[in-house]
Each structure stands twice: as C-alpha cells, then as structure tokens.
Design a binder for these strands. Sequence first.
DNA 1: TAATATTGGTAACTCGTTTTAGCAAAACGT
DNA 2: ACGTTTTGCTAAAACGAGTTACCAATATTA
Lengths: 346, 346
Amino acid sequence: MMNKRATAKDVADAAGVSRTTVSFVLNHTEGMRISEETRQKVMQAAEALNYHPDAAARSMVKGKTFILGFVIRQEPDKAYADLLLPEVMRGISEVASEHAYHLIFKPVPPADEKNSLTTLFLEHQVDGLIVSGPLANDQEIVDLFNANAPIILQGRIDYPNISSVDINNRKAAEKAVNHLISLGHQRIAFISNASLNYSSSKDRLTGYRRALEAAGFVYDEALVFYGDRTPDSGYQAMQNILRSSAKPTAIFIASDTVALGSLNALYQENIRVPEDIAIMGFDDIPLSKHLAPPLSTIHIPAYDLGWNAAHLLIKWLEHKEIPERDCILDTELIVRESCGSRHKDN
Amino acid sequence: MMNKRATAKDVADAAGVSRTTVSFVLNHTEGMRISEETRQKVMQAAEALNYHPDAAARSMVKGKTFILGFVIRQEPDKAYADLLLPEVMRGISEVASEHAYHLIFKPVPPADEKNSLTTLFLEHQVDGLIVSGPLANDQEIVDLFNANAPIILQGRIDYPNISSVDINNRKAAEKAVNHLISLGHQRIAFISNASLNYSSSKDRLTGYRRALEAAGFVYDEALVFYGDRTPDSGYQAMQNILRSSAKPTAIFIASDTVALGSLNALYQENIRVPEDIAIMGFDDIPLSKHLAPPLSTIHIPAYDLGWNAAHLLIKWLEHKEIPERDCILDTELIVRESCGSRHKDN
DNA sequence: TAATATTGGTAACTCGTTTTAGCAAAACGT
DNA sequence: ACGTTTTGCTAAAACGAGTTACCAATATTA
C-alpha cells in the first residue's frame, strides 16, 4: 500500500473547494476573503490528509529554495577536522531555523571542477552562500559575486566589495604575543595555523611579527614554523622546533587544534608546560580549557561569527539589504595555565 | 544589470532548436537520435550562456530532490558538541557527493513540533533520512518509516524493522572493562555518556555490568555516575566520585568527550593519571591520542558508520533495495597510557 | 515506382505549487 | 427597483525542467 503524498488538489477535493482556496487558507494570504466556515473545512481536510506542500513546487514558483549553503574552502578531511566549525555551524543553523531556512553543508576545495561553488548556486540548490576560509585570491568567489550571488565571507579576500564576518586576526595575534612578552619571554617561536595562502594565517603571522618588533625584538625566520590545521602538523612542527637551534622559551601556536599535537610532542619528551616552556594557543576550541594544563589562548566568538553571517545573508535574501561594511567581532585573550602567568593553585 | 539565470528555453533559442532537444542533449537521453552537428550547437550554446538546469524544476518532474537529510536526535548545543559527529558526517558526505546528492544537516530534538522530522520528509525537502541517536522508543521515526520514508538509523531502537548502522555498544563496553579487570582493578566506577533514554548509554552500562559480573564482582550502583555528552558533565561526575565513598581505582567513562572534563577535574585536584587512578574512555575522538596522558579508549569507526549509512540509503533510493539486516561495525580497544598498562617510555 | 524503415527532430503534457485576474451572488445605498 | 460595492470563491497562467507521442523528411527495400 504505497501511501502517496497528498497534494493541494486532494485537499481541495476533500474540502469541496478549489486548489486556489486551499493555497489561500494554508498560507494565510493577505487580502483574500475566506469565510470562517471554508477555512475550517480546508484546515481539517489538510490535517486529515496529513498534507504538506511540496518544497520543489513551492520553490519553483517562488524562485527561492529556502536553503542556505555553508561552504568550506578546504579538503573534506581538513574541513571536518576543524574543531571550531561545529560552533560556527550552530550559529548559522540557529538563525536559519528561525527563518525557516535549511542548511546544506559542503566542503568545496578551490578548483574542484564538478562540485564547484558555482554549480551549487547556479543550479539554484541554494539561495545564498556563506563561504568560510576563502583563499586570498579566490577568483571563483569574485565571479560568483559579480553574477549577483548573495555571498557572505568568513575570512578576508583580496577584493574589496564582498562583505565578510570575521575577527581581526592580526590584532588578536598581537594581543597573544604581547602577553607572552609581558611575562618576560624574549625568544618566542611561532607555529602557523595553516598555509599562508589563507589570509587568517598570514594575518596571524603579521600580528606576531608586529608585536615582536613593537617590543624591540628582531623578527627571526628561524623561529617561524608551519602547521596545516591538524594536530599531526603541530606534532611535527614541535619536533622541528626541538631539533632546531631555536630554543624558544615560549611558543605562540596560531591554532589550538595544531597546539594539541604540539603539546603531545612535549609530553612525550617530558618537557613540562608551562615550567619548561610556555604555550599560547589561538581559537579557544571548546576543549582547550579541559587540557592538562588548560591552554591559554585567544577566544574566537565562533557561534556569533556564524550567527552574524547567517543574519546578514538572510537580510540580503529577504529584504535585498546588501551589507555595506564588514562585520568584525571582538576576540579575547584567555589566560589559563599553559603560558605560566597563573598557577594551578590560584 | 541583473543577470537572470539562463533557462533551457534560452539555450534552445540560441542554438536554434527546441527545448526538447536541449534536454535530450544535455542529459544524454538514451534512444534519442541527435546529429553530431546539433549536439555541438546545443553544447556550445549551453556553455556560452553558462546554463545550469534549475534544481527545483528538475526535482519536481523527477519526484526526487537529490538531497539527503542527516538528523541528530538531540538539542543543537549537544549535537554540535559531539566530537565524533564530524567524522560521521564526512563519511556520509563523501558518499553523497559521489552520487551527486547534497546533504542537509539538522539537529531535530524529539518532540520538536515545528521542525519535526516528519515535516522534513513530507515537504519533500529530502529523499531520505539518516537519523543519529534515536530514543529507544522514538514513535515519530516508526510512523515515518511506516509511511514509506527511506530511513537508516544510527543507533538502536525498540522496533525491529528499521535497519541501522551501528556498533555493538554492549560488547565494546565489555572489552573496555575487561581490560581494566585484567590489569588487576577491583573497584571500577562507571560514568555514562548520556541519559539512559538513549540506547547507546543503556547498552554501554549493560556491558560494564556484564563484564564485572562475569569476573565475579558484584555490580554496585554506588559506582555508577552519569554524564550527558559534555565535558562539563564529566567534570561534575568526577567531583561526585571524589566526594563520594566510592574510591575506585579505575573509571570507565563511556565517552571521551565526557572524560575530558573528568580528566580536568583530576588535574585540578593533583590526582595523577594513571598512577593514582586509571581511566578508560570510549569513542576515540580524534584528539584522544593527543591528551596528556593519551587516553585509552574504544575506537569507533565513525567515518565508516557514516559511509555505510549513506551507502545503504542511496541504494534504497536508487534501486529500491531496502536493507534487510542491520550493519554492525567492529570496534577496537585502543590501549594508550591513561589506563596504566603501558608506560610513556615504552 | 510504391511501400516501408530509419533518422532527426518537435508539440504538448506533466510535476505541484503560488498568484493574477475575474466573476457570480449577496449586501448596500438612494 | 436599480446601480454600486463588498464578499467569497475559482479558472487559468505562470515557474522550468523531463518525457511521451507523434511527425516530417530521408533512406532502404521489394
């Protein structure tokens, strides 16, 4: 017994009215006079038949899909390894739900022919896009934007007109490094969060450099190491530091996820944190405070990042309000134990 | 200059053929003879106009949306806090992409009127559903299944016909506890991963109990504590243990995420792991091996769980092959340092 | 040469909605 | 009693594809 879904026609027949009337009643269409009696009949018929309007049909006539795309500009394995992402998603999906939008989530690495961003939008699978972690020169995004696609960026891009919801990575990094300097550290190493093709990585490195130079230290490339968003890369980078002649007294690791691997490497070598070396992270992933020792870091308002991006996008879609300014959210220095300025027993 | 999307009609006009022909060419419809010359003309016109068929229109005529729903039966904050989820999602989304399906992700707590599961399917937003973490008696899922909705479960439910992709939680818990027993522990406490309304929690507790009893110990409720998927709940549970008269020498914590908080509580109290107390986790979240000390745990093949669920679902959708048996994947005991059977310097 | 088969294509219907335009019947005003 | 408004509803036209059924023109066969 294949229960076919009931259509508006079925409801109309059951209620003894026309499809038009059914549509008016169910959508509470303004300016249409329907007697209370018919309204009831329609409502009851719809209820009885368990009627739900077909999304595709509505989509076609409305010219909207009521679906938002959340796209990560990374390989799937890295995208899904990002521990901050779920919080961003939660922010987006909260707003989306509120406005009755759904969310398609998808990692779309740059230059991925078949699953390209463009396809997602041009096939009209989504009404608009939130793109996280664009490359600094992401031509596909620029093209899409110029083709009138509603896009909100999460991250900076070398193109002025596309608005973005982001943090000030440079300033935040400065804050972190300044704290280490204030604790008396003179040799501070740096491990990047990702390849410098990403603007966030570049900006965090710049912040590190500026803080050093502002304090009168020389920027030394021998103290700069690279991660690629994964704990393993942090482990590797730490190995490199330990085997190098760098001998820093503190390390600013521009990603808590990467720091995880670095801390593991230190643990294996019986190097104590913060007694032997001070560690400062970045991101404040949800578990940083649970590490041993709890990780000092820069808090990113991940949920708010998602929340704001979704809000701007939906405003754009519903009221044609194209955001004019970037939305830059505040970060916060979180001092825990890994950088040595506070002790367990405080 | 509002660049409207090109339609099949536009392509037809540009190529000087009918819409029908455009459709035949672009879909490589079998059994339809098209001269090489017209084929080329159509292809070029489509290319030139940057034509992409409208998803909603295609969806309507095909009766399929080519979207899969991945639904978590939890409150959003808990759903997004699950550190194993991204891996499951990666498995699903990999398969989905391969078959040109998209993925709508959504936490839908039980008894959520407006965003109910039912709506998602009956409005035909999705072709089928993967439901993670159903309640043991999840009536909405049963109803939906009986209305012929393609559903694959991830977790057990008290209803025999709906097929699921899962692990054997009971056996896995037994394995974990047996290991602790084999190390000589006699007082082993238990912290649950979540409320016992969830079958996974219940099964893990059962496994703990059986292992104890099989070894000749008595099951003691004073040694059983509860988490709710969050590190904070693990922190709290550990506080309770430390303040109780339980005094276990080992604790089996049925979730690494919960264990994170528990470890934090121990760290604060200067209780060493594994010297003072042995800890065994469950899940093998990606960062368990990076903790200090690295956490012994039960490995869950999260990616494969997602991969298999998506495969079964798509087989169902594409070939009407309704899976007949549950798919139970293997778990593995991962011995690291937190349970004390192996030392750092090995 | 006439009957038949093949090639290359199209007109028209379908999917399930929303929305515009219009039309009877009832209520109202003078 | 006759025109005008209001009330309550519907027919029909979109939306943009896929698909069925059919039709010319050309090629093949008897």
